[in-house]
Structures are given as C-alpha cells and as structure tokens.
Amino acid sequence: MNKRGIIARTAAGALGGLLLIGGAGAAIADTLDDDNVDVKVDIAPIQPVGALTFSVAADSTTLTEEGSTDTIRQFKGSLPEVTVTDDRAEVPAGVFWYVTGQASDFTGPGGATISAGHLGWAPKLLTAEGDGEVAEGPEVGTVLDPQADPNNVGVVGEELLALALDSQDAATVGEWKASADLTLKTPKNVTPGAYTSKLTLTLWEDEQ
C-alpha cells in the first residue's frame, strides 16, 4: 500500500476526530450561573451661574409719632434697605423683575387692631448708577388721606416698591438698592399701646 496515502488518511481521521471532540465540547457547554449588574447614573441639570436675589438690611423697623393733628395721629419711619442683586452669567431675554410689599393688620393690646390700610409708603430708589433701568414704585397713601386719590388705600395688596422693565438692562449695573418712607395714620382715639404688623416683601421675575 502506498505509505503516503495511509498517512494522509490517518491525518485526516485524526483531524476529524479533533473536530468532533471540539464540536462535542461546544455542544455539552451549559450555563452554570449568571447575574446582572445594574448600571446607574444620575445626570444632574447644569446649574446656572449666578442668580437674581434680594436681601433686606433688617428684619424690623420702628415708627415714631411725628406730625399728628387734632384729629389724626401720625407715625413715621423707614423701610430697611432692600438690595436686589443680579450676578447671572446669562440673563434671559424678554423678562423683567419687580419687588412688591404687602402689610398685615397691626395687632395691639387686648386684641386691638389697626387695619393695614392705615399704613402708607413712598418708595425711593437709593442706587444712583444706571440710566433709568430701574424705577421706584408710586407713593401709596392711607385710607385717612383724601380718597380722591385712588392710591390712598394703604399697603394692603402687593404694592410696587421697585421695577426693572428689562432684567438684562438692569443686570448691567448688577446691584440695586431701594427703601420707602413709611407713614401710619390712625384716628385720635386709637387704643394706646404697642402694635406690630408684618410687611412681606417679594421679588418677582416675569415675562414681558
């Protein structure tokens, strides 16, 4: 027999056997165990740089009697300095900000009250910089002032302290300060004693 032919057939058979063994090895492979890994990520929103904020220099003020008449007792004082700061890197277009104030009724001894309508104010802008980007609100009289003036209602409902018609323009200065002269007028026969009221100041920003 041709030895070369025998060697070739033997080699082919051995290779086939290896292939069969390899196939058998793949066929008998089985899953012994598995597990899962949860991949989680929290993608936080990009935080804006800077903010539009405001602060009040003090949390109280005192009114003292000044300018009373035979029929009306009058008390005056000042709103603590209010500061609006805008240090945002990007100020939205088409928005404006404003600060309002609203007073609660005064409460006094023995449950005595003086309605918030008896408190008036005259806002004033303290920041000299800028070119009219921010304006002070209108003066608001009390219910004991002449009622021909529609503003004589007292600081009872979100009265305007200061207004920036364009937040982008106002931000060029960056910081604005405002205050207000406060006036309380009561009837002559008001119950004597210490009275307190809460004046809530709020900074708003809205679309034009």
Rank of each mutant, 00 (worst) to 15 (best):
E133V: 08
F96A: 11
A112E: 10
A135L: 14
G110M: 01
K124L: 09
A178H: 03
T85N: 13
Q74Y: 01
V95C: 06
T127D: 05
I72V: 15
P92T: 11
Y98W: 15
L126G: 02
E136T: 08
D86A: 05
F106M: 01
R73I: 04
V143D: 15
A89G: 08
A116R: 08
G101S: 13
E139F: 00
G174R: 08
G110T: 05
F75A: 01
D87F: 06
E175G: 09
A116H: 01
D166C: 09
T83R: 10
G141N: 10
L125D: 02
F75D: 03
P80Y: 02
S167K: 07
D87C: 06
E158L: 09
N151M: 13
I72K: 09
V156K: 12
D131I: 09
G154Q: 06
V95F: 11
Y98A: 07
T85M: 05
V143S: 08
N152P: 04
I114A: 01
D166T: 09
W97P: 01
N152K: 01
D149E: 09
G130T: 06
V134N: 07
F106Y: 13
T127W: 04
G154N: 03
D166F: 06
Q74N: 11
D166I: 07
L79G: 07
P80H: 05
P146E: 10
E158V: 10
A135C: 05
T83M: 01
A122G: 08
L161M: 08
A164L: 06
D166Q: 12
D86K: 03
Q168P: 03
E81F: 04
E139M: 12
V143F: 07
V173Q: 13
A171N: 10
T127A: 04
V140F: 08
D169S: 14
G174S: 05
K124Y: 02
W97E: 00
F75Q: 01
V153P: 02
V173R: 06
D131N: 14
A178R: 05
N151E: 10
A116E: 10
P80K: 00
P138W: 03
A164M: 08
F75L: 10
T142R: 10
G94V: 05
I72R: 08
E90T: 15
G111Y: 00
A135Q: 15
D166E: 11
G111A: 00
A122E: 14
W121Y: 03
T100Y: 03
G77D: 02
W121G: 03
G110R: 03
I72W: 07
V134P: 05
L126N: 07
E133D: 15
L165M: 13
A171H: 11
A122I: 08
G141Q: 01
D86V: 10
G101Y: 02
L126R: 03
P123F: 00
V155S: 07
Y98C: 02
A103E: 00
G77E: 02
S179G: 03
G157P: 07
D87V: 07
L126D: 02
